[in-house]
Design a binder for these strands. Structure first.
Lengths: 221, 221
DNA sequence: CTGTCAATTAATATCGATATTTTATAAGGG
DNA sequence: CCCTTATAAAATATCGATATTAATTGACAG
């Protein structure tokens, strides 16, 4: 039998572990936008070698969370209002497309997955679980999961994360308060289960625009 | 004074050079879809170390040209009809959006860049220059360049390359012949210069669908 | 034969050290 | 006093070697 040294260190590889941790630090704002990411610092922070760190950072450039400038290293991707608004616009366009495709081929298996994802999210929200973020993303991805368009889903997942980053950054600032969005989720779920593509798409986009406009207004101040 | 050993070896870094060469080999089909990409082989082929090769491959995963499986290396991204058709669908959706955004804010500076790109492409086509591919991409990107949506443009550039890959792969097969597309480009240019967004978008999408359907039919056979 | 398991081979992932390049610092000339 | 140029420091990029993991082979039992 193999006793595992640390439940958290059940990493598939140093690179993958570094990737997850760095990604998390950027999404939460722990590594602030624009910050220079020095190999040596990260190496000692993550307690690993330079190669895994470099490779993890290279992978994070795919996610547009890290910028790479040849011969002069890496930095956490900068943020701007324009960038946020582009993310919002792209999300509305791509998720609408994906949701409609998902609904078009809806079957009971997908329906059940969706109900399940929604249930888990609600439950996580009630007990103030820190697993809510994960469940929230899972619900939104479940909506699109039946589109059978892997690249489109990948883009949506990427944009989702970028959006969450802005939300987290705003939450660090002053006078930030969360909107209650549980009923919006409920409505989106119900419209989807009724296969009402137009309604579901409208509700989903409104859901994004509402949160988005609030965050956008925060960025002026 | 520093004499440069080889004008082609004016690479900014070994990683960047490897990135460009590997990318080219995958786009041309020189490295066929699904092929295992062994570090040691590529290392000797590119005459560089393992680190630049690994890092270049990591970067190529952003472009969806390379797949990475943790602990078991890299391989050239596989191809399929479904994948091709998703690329085509996404291109039509994203480029239409980008083109309309580009036209919406059209100014004379952008207009001049576009005319220039078109001229260069025509010229390269006439003298059978091998720089045509580059000029062709430049023209299509010039159409979108005024959208002021960097992420959207990046997606379009990515999808353009993936599409070219399929074209190159088809060109290796039997009974492949190129369509004449010069007049289609001319029409797109003229509609854009007239700021006729609806017409330009329709022509652009038809341009893609025509080539796409031809390639798609080849893939059955 | 066929499937399982051990031993071997091959490939990946990682480390530690070094060479190159960039950035910061300081000195000298306009 | 500012700008240019040399020097020193820091950081990146790269190499070569090693440890770890996966794939392969072959022997053995069912």
């Amino acid at each position: 039998m193999n006793v595992m040294p640390n439940p958290l260190t059940k990493d598939r590889s140093a690179t993958h572990g570094s990737y997850l941790r760095l990604r998390d630090m950027i999404l939460t704002g722990d590594l602030p936008p624009g910050q220079k990411l020095k190999i040596e610092e990260l190496r000692s922070l993550l307690d690993t070698g330079a190669s895994p760190v470099r490779e993890a950072l290279s992978l994070l450039t795919s996610d547009m969370l890290v910028e790479r400038i040849d011969q002069r290293g890496f930095r956490a991707a900068p943020v701007s209002k324009a960038n946020f608004e582009e993310i919002l616009a792209l999300r509305c366009m791509l998720e609408e497309k994906a949701l409609r495709a998902s609904l078009a081929g809806a079957d009971s298996s997908w329906e059940e997955q969706l109900v399940l994802a929604h249930h888990r999210m609600k439950k996580a929200a009630q007990k103030g679980d820190n697993g809510f973020e994960e469940a929230h993303k899972a619900f939104h991805m479940a909506l699109l999961a039946n589109a059978n368009m892997p690249m489109l889903e990948r883009y949506c997942a990427q944009l989702y994360d970028l959006n969450i980053r802005y939300r987290n950054l705003a939450a660090r600032g002053p006078r930030y308060r969360t909107r209650s969005v549980q009923n919006e989720h409920q409505e989106i779920l119900e419209a989807s289960l009724k296969r009402d593509a137009d309604l579901a798409a409208r509700l989903l986009i409104d859901h994004y625009r509402n949160t988005g406009n609030y965050l956008s207004s925060q960025m002026d101040a």
